[in-house]
């Protein structure tokens, strides 16, 4: 299989994750969508690295995974805090910035 196949697969997964981000009402659900999107980016990075014969992309994937973990931990902490403060899990209710 060529590079294009892997990139297309990543694009599909990315858009599925994007769909989750814009449709989910639950904040944790949104976070799950974001995880999917990050994953597809990782696929891209590894595929490019493999097909260009350069290990850099793979090293970056390692970094991305680490950052994703940090992001997930922090995001979930924020979710818990939101629960405490606003007593809601629904993203629709979090509209303090409404104009």
């Amino acid at each position: 299989m060529g590079l294009q196949a892997y990139l297309t697969l990543a694009a599909v997964v990315f858009c599925i994750g994007f769909f989750g981000v814009i449709t989910r009402r639950n904040t944790i659900g949104i976070l799950l969508g974001i995880e999917l999107m990050l994953n597809s980016v990782n696929i891209n990075l590894v595929a490019f690295a493999r097909f260009s014969g350069d290990v850099t992309g793979m090293v970056f994937t390692v970094f991305t995974i680490c950052i994703t973990v940090a992001e997930a931990a922090l995001g979930l902490a924020i979710v818990i805090l939101l629960f405490r403060v606003r007593r809601t899990v629904t993203a629709d209710h979090l509209d303090l910035l409404k104009g």
């Binding site: 694009a11 990315f14 858009c15 769909f19 814009i22 009402r25």
Partner: peptide, 21 residues
Amino acid sequence: QTSRRIAGGAVVSIVLVSLIA
């Protein structure tokens, strides 16, 4: 876990994926 505006999200996502592809 409910969703909203599924149709709109689907359209946007499909347009996006076709553009990327």
